[in-house]
Write a protein that binds this DNA or RNA. Sequence first.
DNA 1: CCGTCAATATTTGTTGAACAATAATATTTG
DNA 2: CAAATATTATTGTTCAACAAATATTGACGG
Lengths: 220, 220
Amino acid sequence: MQPAPALLLPQKLANTLRDSLIAGDFTPGQRLSEQALCTRLRVSRNTLREAFRLLTTEGLLEHKVNRGVFVTTPTIFSVIDIYRVRRTIEYRALSHSYPKHPAAARMQEAVDHAKAARQRGDWHDVGSANMRFHAAIVALADSTRLSEFYAQVAAELRLSFFLLDDPELLHAPYVDMNAEIAGLLTQGRAQDAATALEAYLNQSERTLLAALARSAGSGP
Amino acid sequence: MQPAPALLLPQKLANTLRDSLIAGDFTPGQRLSEQALCTRLRVSRNTLREAFRLLTTEGLLEHKVNRGVFVTTPTIFSVIDIYRVRRTIEYRALSHSYPKHPAAARMQEAVDHAKAARQRGDWHDVGSANMRFHAAIVALADSTRLSEFYAQVAAELRLSFFLLDDPELLHAPYVDMNAEIAGLLTQGRAQDAATALEAYLNQSERTLLAALARSAGSGP
DNA sequence: CCGTCAATATTTGTTGAACAATAATATTTG
DNA sequence: CAAATATTATTGTTCAACAAATATTGACGG
């Protein structure tokens, strides 16, 4: 029995940086100085650069030649693109799924968790549960490549939430929609569930785009 | 007007290595020695390692800790997974498309090219045209993220072709199916085109898996 | 003639320093 | 105050080093 997969340092670095990014520790557009991060994270510049390369391909960082890496600033276009990805992947995964799939239980668990968090007014937790819910939908497809790609895109989407200041608006209305989707799937009505999901995605995209457009006006 | 986007060296390195990989210059399972490639490509080890990291996340190389990087050996499972990705992305892109999209013209161009190449018996060219055809299908969705992800998966799929020795079997039967799909889309029958595409993908997957199973028996 | 184990040689993982090229900043000048 | 120039800082890349892990060699005993 192995003690651990023995992740390489650049990988671990990328993981911690990714966590920081989706936790909002950096603000979009911020430049990440190599020297500063090297000393703070106790790694060499070469190692840090490898981690940067990873996160750049994931879309979380942007690399400008001779200028350094910057936290990606989400745009209207990136949000539209990401929702196209979501519709493509999630719709198919759900409509072609069967209710006894292990991931279906995770969907239900996420819904329950989200309801409890909503009652407490813990919007951050509601958001996390929502993420888990949709990751579970993708997992219904039983494709590691799709799941990994989706995780990437979801992380990128999360960046756009930090441009907004009203987490309730972004998460609260969707708990019930998720509950309905999970319920339909449990009843074996996968196609209806997929249709409900598409409605969810459309509404969620519209809300996010509208909020983004408002915040863009108030920005620089 | 800028002369060029000024790609960074690790990026360029990754590109050339990727080209080599999908051209079959290395055999699956082969180890890529850092020192050997450093001197051959005239780059430092650090730079090469960054390129390795890139190609590893793309699935073309496998990184074994303390052992080095190896050309990915395709498996039955990876092929199944990749075809799930293809069905998910291509089906939706095609069924939701409209015939006047610029990418539709590229589909037709690829079909014409493939027909000419088939007549000449140039199966390599047939294969390239087939790749372009399906990349064009994905492009119908107008999503850079989906297109980039698909390109990655397509490159990985290409690796599995090198385990086989009969390119005609893998490409020849599909020229006509592609022509039919393109024709249906031109007639505005996107849904029928998508149905035909799904049939294509099913048959293509079956053929590839069968050939792979045969070659696995004759292997080590 | 094997197979086992220890000693040796490679190779990888990571660091640190170096240097040219580029961008940002400060300074001088008109 | 604006423009041009000099200075500084930062990035892109290479090189050399070393510990840790792996592969290889060779001695030894069965």
